[in-house]
Amino acid sequence: MQTMQARLSEILQEAKTQLNNSETINETESIRIKYLGKKGQLTEILRSMGKLSPEDRKVLGQSANSVRKEIEELLEKKFDELKKIEKNLKLKSERIDVTEPGKRKSLGTKHPITITIEEISRVFMSMGYSIAEGPEVETVFFNFDALNAAPNHPSRDLTDTFYITDEILLRTQTSPVQARTLLKESPPIKIISPGRCFRCDTPDATHSPMFHQVEGLLVDEGVSMTDLKGTLDSFAKQLFGNEVKTKFRPHFFPFTEPSAEMDVSCFKCAGKGCRVCKGSGWIEILGCGMVHPNVLAVGGVDTERYTGFAFGMGVERIAMLKYGVDDIRLFFENDMRFIEQFK
């Protein structure tokens, strides 16, 4: 009995020492088997207890169980510890170079002209304008006559405008959509019309036989020139930044009276004068004016009751200014290295 007690302490001691020195899960497992396995030292002691007197068995049983419990706890602790080490080693071995490039699913992009049209449209849609579209091949009537263009105006010449027949042409502006809308709808009318236009210009860095415009039209009761200024000033600030200033200069367009051109203070140099604004501090952005009564009358609008304003801008020009593109031909060449810059 005494010897068995001593043996138990010995076993505990030995197990402690061995566990302390154990460095792997396998080693620890063999320690577990050595002491707690079916043929383990502690198991054997427990098994041999049958020979003892009930009193001794009780006392020794308690001791043996407490030793077993202690070893079990130690084993669990050791296993946890080793698993943690092992996991850490695994994680360490799995290190990757996170600075290597990602496996990208490449997005496409809209064309920069589409992007610019959408930005312009977004601003005007937020002000309640709808989008109207019209044909690229137009009649002389809608492209010129209905817009109050003088019958002998040089822009009607074959040197300026592409014709398909004497009466049919490629629209030189998106303004015919104004005339079409005026004929189709009654006031209040509030539209913008983005689209392609065509003029007989040989392509070079600043000219293209095809280009885009966004035209706008508002016809309602009580629309005045101050509304025109307010609307376009707000547009300029939304498109180019809140700090830009606008300047309206008198100009001439056949379809508006009074007419104006709007300049914005150069957003590149804040009006100090630079290459973009050619030193003037101002950049011409669009033409506008109060819709000429002759144009309203074509649409059957009561010109005493209703007034309106219209504006038009070149999309390529705005895109070139915004993105710093210096050659308009890039837009229609469609080199992917160019297009993909607008992702």
């Binding site: 937020s126 002000m127 309640g128 709808s130 309602d220 009580g222 101050t226 200024k229 307010g230």
Partner: peptide
Amino acid sequence: PLTLPKGNKES
């Protein structure tokens, strides 16, 4: 002066 049109319309 700068003003905004009084009428409203849905976009």
